[in-house]
Nucleic acid binder design. Structure first.
Lengths: 358, 358
DNA sequence: CTGAAAGCGCTTACAG
DNA sequence: CTGAAAGCGCTTACAG
């Protein structure tokens, strides 16, 4: 493989001159010399070694992104946004699926640090885990010492993210919409309680209830993981605890889609018997049966903005914190509560009646 | 940031000794010395610089994966498989969404080559483009020269992939299933004709027709891109050309799901009026309305096997070519053709009759 | 405008 | 078992 030395030799110049031509330096080089170097590089199919350059610069043009799972559409959308922005600037993107397991997250960050990645983006929510957070602080400090930019896109141990969403407000407006439709007993599938993001979205749910003067019933909040399986399981548990819910708000679309599937199996009609809402608006939310009412978060834009934030930091700037806009998307999975129940008011209802539509 | 030199100084040994302890060398080191080095590394929060090591080894523990689009579930599944296998061996994964644009693909491969990635995995189909293929040959040759492993997971200019699927056979059996159900006029949304994969799957479609003694009608093959939008648009064009189709086979699930959406809007009932089949079995295929009949490809396993193949090559082995098993998944989107049409046989049918179910 | 030289942080024959 | 030294492939003050 040709090195800069080879190019210099073929062009009949010193490596220093060859470097100045090939690395985009501003140092002046005579036109004819420049041509000779370019021709030599071309003929040798020379490509500068990014490792050598990175060693010198103490960091390499790579951005690591920590996600929960790259096959989760929420995260693949974000990564796509990072990728697009990164590519424009010649950066490569490393994806790390932590599965929200502290050990995996730490191990990925360690590898990224060893690689001297120029930027580290935490796309997913922070995990409440003292040992992990201590390790993360250490790694992040070390990375910042060698000049890396570290950016969070979700709430975490450092607080609010550099670029993010108004999770509280968005969830509050979505649940508020259910209240407006007439729902009074609204269940909530909340996501793992040791995720910072669950705290935020749960706060939105409670805020909406409070604004409507509705009581908060702890039993209606089910701590189900943010996944399809979590939705399947969570909706089951919720109905077992309180079959009279007329609406189920979910902390993300995956939970809601899982719930939708299980409700269909149980013969519970959506939205006739129960309304269901998601959060995120992944592309598949519009194609479920019925289509999911949710909140649209511009995930791709988030990823791009996250990279941009990092890039500005690398350029020595102090970019401002940003909160990207969300949008309510009302589709077919939400509607007014069933009449019969309104008539019954707060009366307990036999479980059989809930699945009357079977 | 602490370097090996710092560790050596603190431990009171030479950098050579510190290296031997910290890099997992087999070179013998006295127990007490080893302890001192380990303690020093620990106290300095030392992490070896992967760039320096990579420079020495002429490649770095990173695997680049070229995909069409990381937000396409087919590819995010594959990447997840690569990631899981890679993580076990301390490799990091770089994802590159080429959008099937030759210039982007070339540019990503160039960056990966500059980075001295130890492995390059082409997850998506090859693109028929002379200029791209020439550039790719050049880059791949250079990468192999510095010791990288290059692996394809889909048909391409080099022929069949190192690890892949039996696309022809799988599509033939799926279309064969439609024939078995009684369909005689089967449309086909084929994917871009300049993708090697489209050629393979299209061959499967033709093989099934041939086996059944059915004529191949070029007009029933619609060259629609492998995406949701392609399905929306493709099904529209197909019905315009030949409203009498009783089944529509699609080159992937995205096409089929797009088609399903458009058919619902048109009031065409699936499968009562028209059967629809996909290919890949992405996780969402089971949640459409109706659920999609398709072929299940173990994408995650493909990614893992692809990494494993590369790893064996890096270890100096000559791993065997592999074809992973697929599986027919018959769900609700396919069924017998409508009665009325069987009665009418080959009679032309007014377009209005097709959408009679509106 | 050009080049010699030092150095980024490691690893590994080689000598002892 | 340990260490001095060379070298991977670049870039950049520094001198001219």
């Amino acid at each position: 493989v040709a090195s800069l030395i080879d190019v210099a030799r073929v062009a009949g110049v010193s490596p220093a001159t060859a470097s100045r031509v090939l690395s985009g330096s501003t140092h002046a080089v005579r036109g004819a010399t420049r041509e000779r170097v370019l021709a030599a590089a071309e003929s040798l199919d020379f490509l500068p070694n990014a490792l050598a350059r990175g060693l010198l610069k103490s960091r390499v043009a790579v951005v690591g992104v920590i996600v929960h799972d790259i096959s989760d559409p929420y995260f693949s959308e974000i990564v796509r946004g990072v990728e697009d922005a990164a590519q424009e600037h010649g950066y490569l993107v490393i994806t790390c699926s932590s599965d929200r397991v502290p050990g995996k997250e730490e191990s990925y960050v360690r590898l990224l640090r060893a690689m001297r990645a120029a930027a580290l983006i935490f796309a997913g929510s922070g995990i409440r885990d003292a040992a992990l957070e201590a390790a993360l602080r250490r790694h992040v400090a070390a990375m910042e010492r060698y000049g890396a930019a570290v950016v969070h896109l979700s709430p975490n141990f450092r607080g609010q993210p550099a670029v993010g969403f108004d999770n509280v407000g968005a969830m509050a407006s979505l649940v508020g919409e259910l209240v407006r439709l007439g729902h009074r007993r609204i269940g909530y599938l909340s996501g793992q309680d040791w995720l910072y993001i669950s705290g935020e979205r749960g706060r939105g749910y409670r805020r909406a209830l409070r604004s409507a003067g509705l009581p908060f019933d702890r039993r209606l909040v089910i701590d189900a993981p943010l996944s399809l399986a979590g939705g399947v399981d969570g909706v089951e548990r919720l109905l077992a605890v309180e079959p009279r819910v007329t609406a189920i708000a979910c902390a993300n679309d995956l939970l809601a889609i899982g719930a939708l599937g299980r409700l269909a199996e149980l013969g519970v009609r959506v939205p006739d018997d129960v309304s269901v809402t998601g959060f995120d608006d992944i592309v598949w939310a519009g194609r479920t049966s019925p289509p999911l009412s949710t909140v649209r978060l511009p995930m791709r834009e988030l990823g791009a903005a996250g990279f941009e934030h990092a890039r500005q930091m690398l350029a020595g700037g102090r970019p401002r914190r940003r909160v990207l806009d969300h949008q309510l998307v009302v589709r077919g999975s939400s509607g007014p509560p069933p009449r019969r129940r309104e008539v019954q008011g707060g009366q307990p209802m036999a479980e059989a009646e809930l699945v009357v539509a079977t």
